[in-house]
Amino acid sequence: MSLPRQRRIRTLAVLFCVITFTTFLFSYTFRDPSLYFLKYASHLSDSFFSKGPCACQQCMVEVEDDPWFSEHFNQSIHPLMSRENSVLSDETFKWWQWLQSERQPANFSEVVEELFQVIPDEVLYMDSSPERCRTCSVVGNSGNLKGSHYGSLIDSSDFIIRMNQAPTSGFEEDVGSRTTHHVMYPESAIDLDNNTSLVLIPFKTLDLQWIISALTTGTIKYTYLPVMSRIKANKDKVLIYSPTFFKYVYEAWLEGHGRYPSTGFLSLLFAIHICDEVNVFGFGADQYGNWHHYWEENRLAGAFRHTGVHDGSYEHNVTLLLADKHKIQMFKGR
Rank of each mutant, 00 (worst) to 15 (best):
I9Y: 04
S42V: 13
K221E: 11
M184P: 04
D32N: 04
D46E: 14
H78E: 14
F48R: 08
F26N: 14
N290D: 07
E296T: 09
I328F: 13
E255V: 11
A214P: 03
Y314F: 14
S45R: 10
G176I: 12
M330L: 12
I220C: 03
L300F: 14
K332M: 04
A214V: 02
N74S: 08
P120M: 06
T20E: 09
K237R: 15
K39Q: 03
T179F: 11
F283T: 07
P79M: 00
Y125S: 07
I272K: 00
H181F: 02
F48A: 08
R5G: 07
I77G: 02
S42N: 06
S188H: 10
E255Y: 04
G147Q: 01
S101N: 12
E114I: 07
E114M: 14
S45Y: 12
S109I: 10
L80F: 13
N279R: 14
V309I: 12
W68C: 02
D127G: 14
F331H: 14
P4L: 08
F270A: 00
T168R: 09
M60F: 00
Y294A: 05
Q287D: 06
Y125M: 13
S157M: 09
R132Q: 09
T307E: 09
I274N: 11
L153Q: 10
L300E: 10
S152A: 05
W98S: 11
Q6E: 09
S197T: 02
G308W: 13
D66F: 06
V280Q: 02
G52Q: 06
S152I: 05
E113F: 04
H292R: 08
M1R: 05
K51E: 13
G308D: 07
N234F: 15
Y314K: 10
V18D: 03
F245C: 03
Q209R: 10
G143C: 03
V238T: 12
P261F: 07
E296Q: 11
F331E: 07
S42A: 05
V14N: 02
V139N: 11
A252E: 03
K232R: 08
C17A: 12
Y150C: 06
